[in-house]
Design a protein around this nucleic acid. Structure first.
Lengths: 191, 191
DNA sequence: ATTATTATTTACCATACGGTCCGTAATATT
DNA sequence: AATATTACGGACCGTATGGTAAATAATAAT
């Protein structure tokens, strides 16, 4: 009878997400991963395969956790498109200021990190971007004028997505909370 | 009499900028830098000190080259604020599509790369962000309504800067040329 | 030709890196 | 207790990494 796992794989994935999100792929060593997960390399290799596969698992965990939360906010906030985006941006700003979380957005960070840009990573990133784009599209559709004009909706969705990604990069240093709120408020005027 | 340098330090800095911009700090090894610059490590260490100082030199070169070019475009394009931003965004989109340059923006990439986030790097990045923000502020001032309302100008500047940074991240994979143009056109409607 | 100074080339260094090997441990079943 | 199976811990691996040491080279001045 096989020895049971001494840890929860989901917790390992969450720890992987957190460390790779904070530090990026190249700057996170296996020793860092050991410390973050509380597991030894051999256990990690047994479960995930290699460092790169751990990275992909981290990205997928982010998708299931953070991208899904953004989708929930955009999809379930009652009212207008603007109200939905306001809720999303408020969530972004609050996590940076209240929780002191300046990791930005793992999707944006990973997109910026060229070294991890192999086809598999690119595919996971594309899926996540696609989900964000769809969620943005859906939130805009709360307003009749966007429902009735697919071209406008798509262009606005792209603009909003670019600004969202930019805000999540700038939260890491260039923009303080006040600047974030100012940018967000002006962005909401576009809707 | 000392032996003269066998290379041009400015060319070395440009080569450093290009390799670090393409690959980021952690994923660029000293061997990569040797290949990119055509110089041996000892020569590089003599001139720059250490790898991190080479990175700072690369960022400063980017500031003098690319940030300065964006400033020139925004400052010297005749006409309205919108025309100025249109020229800037066109330049961004054209470098991605015509020149196949998908490195994005070194400033944005460096901001996303947590490992290089020591105080010195943060300072260089802050200076560059500040220059971009000032250039955006100046370009908006081409229109009387922005000249006459500092609060509006500042909020719009922040929004535009976020969207610009986001576009430069998204150009690396999530947005093709058509998507870039669509997002840019919608962004220009905000001005 | 010699000299002093800096620059380049080559070899070398200690440590870090991602990954593998192998002995021991944990478990249910018999 | 013995067994088979998987899981974990610790040691080990070959290569990569950022950096240093030392010999040789380039140059103008004497």
């Amino acid at each position: 009878m096989a020895r049971p796992l001494g840890f929860d794989p989901e917790e390992a994935k969450t720890a992987l997400m957190n460390i790779f999100w904070a530090r990026g792929y190249e700057a996170t060593s296996m020793q860092d991963i050991e410390v973050a997960t509380g597991l030894r390399k051999q256990s990690l290799y047994r479960l995930f395969g290699d460092k790169h596969s751990m990275y992909l698992a981290a990205l997928r965990t982010y998708e299931d956790c953070v991208v899904a939360e953004a989708e929930r906010i955009l999809g379930q906030t009652p009212g207008s498109a603007r109200a939905r985006f306001a809720a999303l941006l408020d969530w972004v700003i609050r996590s940076a200021s209240d929780a002191g979380d300046v990791r930005g957005c793992f999707l944006a960070n990973a997109s910026a990190e060229a070294s991890a840009a192999d086809p598999e990573t690119a595919e996971v990133l594309a899926i996540m971007s696609g989900r964000m784009a769809s969620a943005f599209d859906g939130a805009l559709s709360a307003d009749a004028r966007y429902r009735d004009d697919a071209g406008l909706r798509r262009a606005r969705m792209r603009h909003l997505l670019a600004a969202y990604v930019g805000l999540r990069i700038l939260v890491k240093g260039a923009f303080d909370e006040a600047a974030m709120r100012e940018a967000a408020d002006d962005l909401l005027l576009s809707i």
